[in-house]
Design a protein around this nucleic acid. Structure first.
Length: 510
RNA sequence: CGGGGAGUAGCGCAGUGGUAGCGCACCUGCUUUGGGAGCAGGAGGUCGCGGGUUCGAGUCCCGUCUCCCCGACCA
């Protein structure tokens, strides 16, 4: 039975000497607020999403209502990614939700890949439509129809477009954020004069936008690599991916960046005249990250107390909690809030006198707020405040005059510690394998690293039938392999480059 | 599509033919508030839908719809 965590308080009138202590268990054990992540991880995930007020299911199966707190986190992700995407040179635009069904058909692999999960509109205005329209599962086709109109000359290139939108992929097994029939995302689409330039851009997005964001902001380490042909995006020549490890030992694909070659430019006849007057098809990329990142945040950092947010993404960095509304605590709390806000901190005041202190603490913990300032009459009398960190659970008493400085310090430390811990957890969950059987065994608790040559002649198929998938291919020194080469054994054995052999990262995955 | 379950208050559930219940949540009041507080009072239901059996159906029978889980399919 889980024990409730209880605060041990020391005398507030002591001189403001610094000390730390862990939260201690108590005798009373009320019913748990959320399921234990160790005992029932899926249930724990659902509980956290619900209790942190991130999202809930919509009336149609597979749909999702993103609640204000969850959406605030998503908005912060959007803002940060949007800035990075623009720094990479792309401009935002918006394309229609409805796509003529015929567009999807133009690229053979694309239509084959997406057909099973399309939502198709057959009626409009009370009549059957002459040509059904599909609700976009992704926008390659409709955006490329525009590209064909916009691009005429090498002077029009590169064309770098990004769209923030919702997309629909009908899902039979939905899970909030991780797999829903409708989700929100960003999709970038670019056109370039040469294959080399397109390839470089796809990698630039992968590393300088996606990986940097995931590591620096979300504090989630990712393995970058290339997808196998089997896992590749429908219509791409190469798919690059960011793969993360969740706390239950399963992998999550957090973002992908594709080289599309000339597949779509040929299908949609996107051509340009080069400086020699020759007509060429453009080389393209597309790339996206979605609200799935929300699921990653929950599962990479969450713990038995709920969500745990890295300060950089937290809508509320600090909550100032009035323990009880007496002895001038409210006024003092308000002035602390004002001071922290003036220093640019995102702060919320919790002075609710009608809800017990314990309940409020638990609720802020569930929401993953990185730092709490707890202020009671004893603190006010002693000119101190209690500072509590969400990620470590540690509390310390801080002299009032040092509070603002300590808040900044702790936020910085928390961001760093969360990343370091996530890296450590991933390392513990990663093991080497030299046979398929070893890989399958290792993948039960995390990433299995195996020679990519084992995937040939049915090897990948064997992993899949054991519920294990190849998350990505990379070099044994951790660097990215070459872009896709023609299918077959060469793909797996020959593309490692001179620096090292190609390894496969395999895992159970969401 | 195959197999298995479930539909009763916002959520989770009990209720083997005789007054529609419990826990949590919600509302009011008082006492509380340093890790999900206590007491008292209160509100909330066409028991998925349609038919049948019966003096009487949440309960039994027939039909129907929906949802969930496992598998299959899929990223």
């Amino acid at each position: 039975m889980r024990r409730r965590a209880v605060l041990r308080v020391s005398g507030g009138t002591e001189q403001p000497r610094e000390y730390h202590h862990r939260i201690m268990p108590t005798e009373h054990a009320p019913e748990r607020v959320i399921a234990s992540p160790d005992e029932d991880f899926p249930r724990w995930y659902q509980d956290v999403v619900a209790k942190a007020e991130l999202a809930e299911g919509g009336p149609v199966r597979g749909t999702m209502v993103i609640r204000p707190y969850g959406y605030a986190i998503w908005e912060r992700m959007q803002a940060d990614l949007d800035r990075r995407i623009k720094e990479a040179g792309a401009s935002n635009a918006y394309f229609p939700l409805f796509i003529p069904e015929s567009y999807l058909r133009r690229e053979a692999e694309h239509v084959e890949g997406f057909s099973p999960e399309l939502a198709v509109v057959t009626h409009g205005g009370g009549r059957e439509l002459e040509e059904p329209v599909v609700v976009r599962p992704t926008s390659e086709t409709i955006i490329n129809a525009s590209f064909a109109k916009w691009i005429h000359s090498h002077r029009d290139l590169p064309l770098l477009i990004n769209q923030w939108a919702n997309v629909v992929r009908w899902e039979l097994r939905p899970r909030l954020f991780l797999r829903t029939s409708e989700f929100l995302w960003q999709e970038g689409h670019t056109a370039h004069a040469t294959r080399g330039e397109a390839g470089e851009f796809a990698l630039k997005i992968l590393r300088e936008v996606y990986e940097d964001f995931m590591v620096d902001v979300l504090a989630i380490p990712v393995l970058t690599g290339r997808k196998t042909a089997r896992e590749r995006f429908a219509g791409a020549t190469t798919t690059w991916t960011c793969e993360a490890m969740m706390r239950d030992g399963k992998a999550l694909q957090m973002g992908t960046s594709h080289e599309l070659g000339q597949n779509f430019s040929q299908a949609f006849d996107i051509t340009f005249l080069d400086d020699q007057g020759r007509r060429n098809h453009v080389w393209q990329t597309s790339w996206g990250v979605s609200t799935r990142l929300m699921g990653a945040l929950v599962m990479a950092h969450g713990d038995a107390s709920g969500l745990c947010l890295p300060p950089a993404i937290a809508p509320v960095e600090v909550v100032v909690l009035v323990v009880r509304a007496e002895g001038g605590t409210v006024e003092r709390a308000e002035s602390i809030v004002a001071e922290l806000r003036s220093k640019g901190r995102r702060v919320e005041l919790d002075a609710r006198a009608d809800t017990s202190f314990g309940r409020r603490v638990v609720s802020w913990e569930l929401k993953g707020v990185p730092l709490r300032v707890e202020l009671g009459p004893r603190d006010v009398a002693g000119e101190t405040a209690v500072l509590a960190r969400r990620d470590t659970g540690t509390k310390s008493t801080v002299p009032m005059g040092e509070l603002a400085g300590r808040v900044s310090e702790e936020l910085r430390a928390s961001q760093q510690a969360m990343l370091a811990n996530a890296v450590l957890r991933r390392e513990r969950a990663t093991s080497e394998a030299s046979t398929l059987d070893q890989a399958i065994a290792a993948a039960q608790k995390g990433f299995a690293v195996l020679p990519a040559s084992l995937l040939a002649s049915g090897g990948e198929e064997r992993l899949n039938s054991a519920g294990v998938s190849v998350r990505c291919l990379r070099r044994s020194d951790g660097s990215l392999p070459d872009a896709e080469v023609p299918e077959g054994a060469d793909d797996l054995e020959g593309a490692g480059g001179a620096d090292g052999k190609l390894v496969a990262i395999a895992a159970k995955a969401y």
